[in-house]
């Protein structure tokens, strides 16, 4: 696989949002796929915005 440099700040941001959605899932009976979809959106957003 290609050697992409991981921007740690971006990763940190993704992790933070993952927490948020974990929390939301447990609270509101969200399904797992909801959570996964949200996380995917976040990743795409973060990388688009913050990674060259």
């Amino acid at each position: 696989m290609s050697k992409i440099e991981i921007d740690k700040k971006v990763r940190r941001e993704i992790i933070k949002w993952t927490h948020y959605y974990f929390h939301k899932k447990e609270m509101n009976q969200w399904t797992k796929s909801n959570t996964v979809n949200e996380i995917v959106k976040i990743i795409k957003k973060e990388i688009k915005e913050n990674v060259d």
Partner: peptide
């Protein structure tokens, strides 16, 4: 990898794998 449009998604996947 051959397809450029995938570069972005592949990057996302890479971040995901790192986590």
């Amino acid at each position: 990898e051959a397809n450029e449009e995938n570069a972005f998604i592949l990057k996302c996947i890479e971040y995901s794998n790192s986590i």
